[in-house]
């Protein structure tokens, strides 16, 4: 936040100077109220708080994992960071890089394009459940209601929960929920 503030302050001072020099009070007013009245929405919010003391949240866990660079890139492209750091509780099914790589060629590149932001967000939200359940506990469910408003099926195969066809490889408790690492990307059923 600090560098941003400094930047805003210097930009602001500059605008004042220009405003004065040109005797252009109208221009000064337009420039002056910008930093005071608007907030940038893209890179502010809970995701950008510095906090070394708390248990890492689901987003920080994903960011810290070398196996999830694709997922993190996707979350950033879809600007979903703040949704993942909420009080939740949130259960994130986190496909590995390998799982993304197993998608048909070009799929990930396509989804990361700015024009496909909504489609990407829909897929990512399909990986998020409001809740916090251990792998074992998930066997109690037949389906989970996901953040994109869809449902994902849960089956039990050989005593293991299979979520939307994906196997849970590992589970990491987070400060605001839990991350289940899965071996497949969950694709929402098309309507």
């Amino acid at each position: 936040m600090k560098p941003i503030k400094k930047l805003m302050l210097s930009a602001f001072c500059l605008s004042l100077f220009l405003g004065c020099k040109n005797e252009n009070a109208e221009g000064a007013s337009v420039e002056a109220d910008k930093p005071a009245a608007t907030e940038t929405t893209e890179r502010t919010g809970q995701a950008f708080i510095e906090d070394d003391g708390s248990t890492p949240n689901v987003l920080q866990i994903a960011i810290g994992s070398p196996d999830h660079t694709t997922l993190v890139a996707a979350v950033q492209a879809a600007q979903l960071e703040n949704a993942l750091v909420n009080a939740g509780p949130l259960m994130v099914f986190a496909p590995t890089n390998e799982a993304f790589a197993a998608l048909p060629e070009g799929t990930v590149e396509d989804l990361l394009k700015p024009e496909n932001k909504d489609a990407l967000a829909n897929i990512l939200k399909y990986h998020v459940t409001p809740g916090n359940y251990s792998k074992d506990f998930l066997k109690k469910f037949k389906k989970l209601g996901q953040a994109n408003n869809g449902y994902v099926q849960v089956e039990v195969v050989d005593g293991e929960p299979i979520v939307g066809g994906a196997k849970i490889l590992a589970s990491i408790p987070a400060g605001n929920g839990i991350v289940h690492v899965i071996d497949k990307v969950l694709l929402p059923p098309t309507e």
Binding site: A25, E26, A28, S29, A32, A36
Partner: peptide
Amino acid sequence: SNKGALGSSAA
């Protein structure tokens, strides 16, 4: 113009 500069500020 002074009033204008203040008129739209959140402060």
